[in-house]
Design a protein around this nucleic acid. Structure first.
Lengths: 127, 127
DNA sequence: CTGGATCCCTTTGGATACTG
DNA sequence: CAGTATCCAAAGGGATCCAG
């Protein structure tokens, strides 16, 4: 969840690796993507997220939400009612990011079989 | 470096989050991106990678290379000379993945300032 | 030159109980 | 409802030494 901005000028290929890491840093952690997915469709409440994202704990959901909010990817709205009501929704910036992630999804689907095959070959290599 | 295939059917938004994680899983870890960058430009030797990727240790470089090779993103060629010579080069599949990552790079550059601002605001919020 | 093996510290993340 | 606090286990990753 922390950022690796140990991005020294690097070298060949330069700061590009650094910049990619910068983007990936926003969605690092097991749950960021899921939160992004849910909040991209419209405002969602904490409990809804907790139910929608299978396996997430309260703690991790909170941490993930805070990080995304801090980076300006999420807007948190508190309704001072009782009981409390808090809604999270993705910003435009986050939606753009999500679009790029969809590109990755497409790649993963297209190559899922190939990767599985590569692994089988690699693992069966009597090394 | 391990894969999170605890991708239960999930739910709303479905297996999509899972599929993205599948893609991100290939480039997880601090060094995969750097390796991908270098090997995309052509065959590279172990020592060249070690020098090109600032800060990587021998151990982590080896682990990263093994994982990428296992997933079919890298081809490892051993020349049985003495001293040994080993070359790594990205596969077409890896190049495609890298193209998608460039999309993320573009996003990161475009929003770098906005994110920094969002953080400053968030952090200065006397909470 | 190209790694493998080991040790150890740091970070991540899960479980659970408590609170305004 | 929407978190916070605490404790603890597992994974990631660095340092170092050894070997073909």
């Amino acid at each position: 969840m922390s950022q690796r901005n140990d991005c020294v000028p690097d070298d060949a290929g330069g700061g590009e690796a650094c910049t990619v890491l910068e983007a990936l840093g926003r969605v690092s952690g097991k749950w960021s993507i899921g939160v992004l997915m849910e909040t991209t469709r419209g405002p969602v409440r904490f409990t809804e997220l907790e139910r929608a994202i299978t396996g997430v704990s309260r703690r991790m959901l909170t941490l993930t939400l805070r990080n995304l909010e801090r980076d300006g990817l999420l807007v948190r709205t508190v309704y001072p009612t009782v009981p409390p009501k808090v809604e999270y929704v993705a910003t435009d910036m986050a939606r753009e990011l999500y679009d790029h992630l969809l590109g990755l999804t497409e790649w993963a689907e297209r190559h899922r079989a190939g990767i599985a095959r590569a692994r089988a070959v690699y693992d069966s290599a009597a090394s």
